[in-house]
Design a protein around this nucleic acid. Sequence first.
DNA 1: TGTCCACTGGAACGTACGGCTT
DNA 2: AAGCCGTACGTTCCAGTGGACA
Length: 411
Amino acid sequence: MDDPRPLDRIFERFSTGPSLIRDRKVLWHSYVPDELPHREEQITQIGSILATGLKGSRPSNVFVYGKPGTGKTAVTRYVLRELTTKFGELQLPFKSVYLNCRNVDTDYRVLARICAELGQKVPFTGLPTDEVHSRLIELLESQDLLTIIVLDEVDRLVLKSGDDTLYKLTRINYELSNSRVSLIGISNDLRFPEYLDPRVLSSLSEEKVIFHPYTALQLQDILRRRSSHGLKDGILEEPGVINLCAALAAREEGDARRALDLFRVSVEVAEREGSKDVSVDHVEKARLSIERDTVLEVLRTLPLQQKLVLYAVYILGRYKHPHPVTGEVQDVYGDLCNELGIDSLTQRRVSDLINDLDAIGLVNAKVVSKGRYGRTKIIRLSVSNKMVAEVLERDSRIKTLSSYIPKNLGK
DNA sequence: TGTCCACTGGAACGTACGGCTT
DNA sequence: AAGCCGTACGTTCCAGTGGACA
C-alpha cells in the first residue's frame, strides 16, 4: 500500500523470477501435439477413410461423435494436418476448411465462411443465401480439388437453423463435376442423430467414428506427456498434481480439455505465487479460480435486461423466499425497470430470458404444476447470492437499485 | 371426474440495422 | 436511391398443460 510502485515488484518477479514453464503453448488444450495418445484407433479410422482422397476418389462423409473433451477436434485436426502434408508432398490439390458451428450458426454464415476460407470474401450480410450457395459452387468448380469441410459442434447449427444447409452440403457433389467435397460433422450431443432428418443423417454418416471418454489413467498419461514437453524438469509434486488433475477431470466424464486447463492454471497459480514448484494446493486454488472466473465473466457480460431479470430473482431470494416463480420475478423485474425508467419486456420474453439464464447455468428453472394454482416455473439461483450481488451491483445502473425492497412482503 | 389456474412455449410477425445489387 | 436480404431482438396471439381442488 505504501509502496509507490507496486506493479514494479510484480513485473520484476515475472521477468526475472524462476519460470516453471519451458513451452507455454504446449499446455493449452487447443495445441495439437505430434502424437495423440490413446486415440490411435480413431486416428487410424479417420485417416483411412480420408486417405481414399489420395487416390483421386471422394472420401466418405464422416460423422464423429462423443462427449466434450474426448479428443474429437484434436484428432480431426491432427489427421487433416497430416493429410495436408501428404497431399502437398504428392502435389495433389487439397484444401480443408474447419469451422465451429458454435460461432458460425446460421445457413448464411456457414456458406459465407466456407467461401472465405476458400479465398473468396463474402459480405457478412446483404446477399440472399441462395446467392452465396451459387458462389460457393462456382468457386469449387473453378478449382479442381478435394475439399474437406469440418463442421465442429454441428448439432448447434441444426438446433438453431435446421438441417437445410447440412442437407445442401451433403448434396453438393451432385452439382460439381470438377471438384469433390467431403464433410466431417462433429457432435458433442450423442442424441443428435435422433433429431436429424434421416436423409441428412444417412449421407452425413456414411462412416461413423465414436470417441469414448478418457479414463483417469489415460488422462494422467496425457498430462505427463504434456508436462514433459511444456514444463521444466522436477517442478511437479509427483504424482499428486497430475493424479489430482486427472481425477477431477475424470469425474467430469473424462474431459481432457478440463484436465489440461486445470493443469495449466495450476502451474500459472504456482508461478504467480513465485513458488519453485507446483503442488496439490495449487491445483485446488486453480480449480476454485477457474470456477469463479467462469461465473464472474458470464455475469459481467450479460445484457441489461437479463441482468435485471437475474437481479429480480436475487432480490426475491433475499427478501421473500429462495425459489420464486415466473409471475413473481416478472413483477419485481417490472418494478426494477420502473425505477430505472426503462421499458420492461413482456412476460413471454422474460420467460425466454429465464430459460437462457437456465441454459448458461446461472439459475435453475423447473416447470412445475401447482394444480389449481396453475403451471409455472420455479426458479432458483445456481450461483451464490453474494457473487450475483457483487458483480451485478458493479453495473452503475443496477447499483442505484440496491436499496429496492419488493412490495407485498411475506405473502 | 371435470374444471380451471398461471403460466409455457410455438409460430407469425414487426422493427431496426448494416449491407448488398441494380 | 430503391428494393431486397440476413440477423437480432422483441411483441402478439393462442393452443396446450399438469394437477389441486370442488
